[in-house]
Design a protein around this nucleic acid. Structure first.
Lengths: 353, 353
DNA sequence: TGTATATGGTTAAACGATTAAGCAAAACTA
DNA sequence: TAGTTTTGCTTAATCGTTTAACCATATACA
């Protein structure tokens, strides 16, 4: 009796969130009925449903997501791990993932690894701790050890990789055809009359960059151009490093007449150096970047680049995750979606204007 | 009996996650004791604690975050809303928020409003639905109606705003001194000998941009410069619009000799146009941007800009949130943290080199 | 020796929503 | 009219963790 009283007092003091129980009390029905009514269960009469929804609105009822998640064993949360968010590619991918998943009642948790392996492992732990229903990730440059991702797989949580991540994990992957992209670029440059085409590529250990390098090498061969090792450089692909590696190329006795750079950011650094040194682009040296970041259209001269279809990658990644939620058994299979990339030709590689 | 059997079979089939109950069973103690042991409760002996932790490790126990969140009434999740993530400022703020909060056991959910009011409202709903313990936000350009934020306040969920968001909501705010920043910039330009200083500003309705505009006007007055309405332009501050508004300024009979632009992105657009038209920066027109994005140091000529202390803003925002978690009663008070901004002088406004 | 105080737990009730199982009343069927 | 089906709910268990309240035993103290 006393207990009940203190409880009632408590109810008066604290603006408690309304629960289905509160609704049930008002209508003198069971909480179960309320739950069912809110979910349009066929076993509840239209009249009751209407009443329940009305009261829910009046009391400003907000379902307790934690409770239903606990009961149902799923959180409706999807974790997204990206190397960084401040590139247009990743933020666009994220935006599209969010758009698709929100419609299906999922929310996303974004974490950035900042290209750090350790931070990436922490992110995975964090996401698992938060009981996400799935993880969509693009790996950090540093990541070679896949143990943490195996952990996710072992838990039976759907894992989808995009862009960075094609590897031996045997999980779904969405990305563009990096090997072909290199072919398209080299062919374009050859058509422009270039004969000494350099490549400032990413780290070979990262599969996508390795594919671009392989594509570059094979494309040279295809066009009967010799492979000059001085013209093939590994880079971290930041703006600064693009600048540095371009400086390295300029020091060569026999300079390249074109440079294909595996990232727009590095290409921007390279372009700035060329501009400063009054080296004419594309006349003296043609330039092609990768990623089609918005600024490529805005710099002078504008940068040719590869459109990675970030929106489509995001959508496909989300849809791939959703396909698992509809299956009964979660058996991860290697399911690669490889999109064709598209070369956007701009001033930096277009001499026939 | 049959029921119990089927349950046991189920246990064999599905790799069920281990719970505190499983640990309790192994050690023949109660689940409550396990819970307490894991939380280093003083009423549990060292011996038991040690045993519990050992078994937990062996069984690869991962606490069910949803269950504890439900029970404790808090999710240990903090929502972060930003206009977009693909600017260095916001991604740096986010990174620092995350760093501080992770240490205290909080995770963050990032959502981007894409400068859309509607998307921002959706984000708020989403975050409330996910039962976040707090929201740290920077408002979209569009946002004038504060009803949704009032909703957050009404629910008693700590709300902290940064950068965009100084307004009448009466909640904590962390930002830089925009008014003073304008003064610093104008003073610097005057010192460089500039006499006709233009300002491409943001939308007046957004308080921070309005403060920059007010600062600009007052600073002109202070230095006995006339205010020419033609030289004060409102802009969306994108790269494209920076270009357009600069074109507008170039059309004037009496061109400015300096332009102070309220965003580095717009400043970049302006700079590109000037470069294309071979207008010398800073000799003919000096340029100062805002935000100190990394690319300002990389463009030619490098752009002078205002350092907004993104890292510090992120840290302070996180710490402000944490201060609420330690208080008993959540009484939101207007608590502004205004950081002094810092002008980084680069080539675009430095004629005395 | 009897009482007080630690010590080291246990029990059981929550948190809020979901859901399998049950059950009464109404409606239909033959 | 008896039996079956449908309708529309209720009951009670459950998700995994936390925590207030309780209890037994050991130790301390006078």
């Amino acid at each position: 009796m006393l207990k009940r009283l203190s409880k009632d007092i408590k109810k008066l003091n604290t603006k408690k969130k309304t629960t289905i129980k509160d609704i049930a009390n008002v209508l003198n029905i069971s909480a179960a009925a309320v739950s069912k009514a809110l979910h349009d269960d066929s076993r509840i009469s239209k009249k009751t449903k209407k009443a329940v929804k009305q009261v829910a609105k009046n009391l400003n009822y907000q379902p307790n997501h934690l409770a239903s998640a606990l009961r149902k064993g799923k959180s409706n949360l999807v974790g997204v791990i990206v190397p960084r968010t401040n590139s247009n590619f990743f933020s666009s991918v994220i935006q599209n993932i969010e758009e698709v998943l929100n419609k299906e009642g999922y929310n996303i948790i974004i974490t950035q690894s900042n290209e750090s392996f350790k931070k990436e492992c922490d992110s995975i732990d964090t996401l698992l701790f938060t009981q996400v229903d799935g993880i969509i990730a693009s790996m950090a440059n540093e990541t070679i050890d896949l143990e943490y991702y195996e952990k996710v797989k072992a838990k039976g949580i759907p894992l989808i990789l995009f862009d960075r991540g094609e590897n031996d994990l045997n999980v779904d992957y969405i990305g563009i055809n990096d090997y072909d992209s290199s072919h398209i670029i080299v062919k374009h440059l050859v058509n422009q009359g270039c004969k000494r085409i350099a490549h400032i590529g990413g780290y070979k250990r990262t599969r996508i960059f390795n594919n671009r390098i392989r594509g570059y090498i094979d494309a040279l061969k295809k066009h009967n151009l010799p492979l000059d090792k001085e013209l093939l450089i590994e880079s971290s692909l930041t703006i600064e490093d693009g600048r540095n590696k371009m400086a390295q190329l300029l020091k060569l006795q026999n300079r390249p007449d074109a440079v294909y750079i595996a990232s727009d950011y590095a290409a921007l650094g390279a372009l700035q150096l060329l501009n400063e040194q009054n080296i004419k682009v594309p006349e003296e040296i043609a330039l092609v970047g990768f990623g089609d970041e918005p600024f490529t259209a805005m710099v002078t001269p504008s940068l040719s680049s590869i459109n990675q279809h970030s929106a489509e990658i995001g959508k496909q990644a989300a849809l791939t995750f959703l396909s698992y939620t509809k299956k009964k058994s979660i058996k991860q299979t290697l399911n690669k979606i490889i999109l064709d990339a598209e070369l956007v030709v701009r001033e930096s590689s277009n001499s026939i204007q």
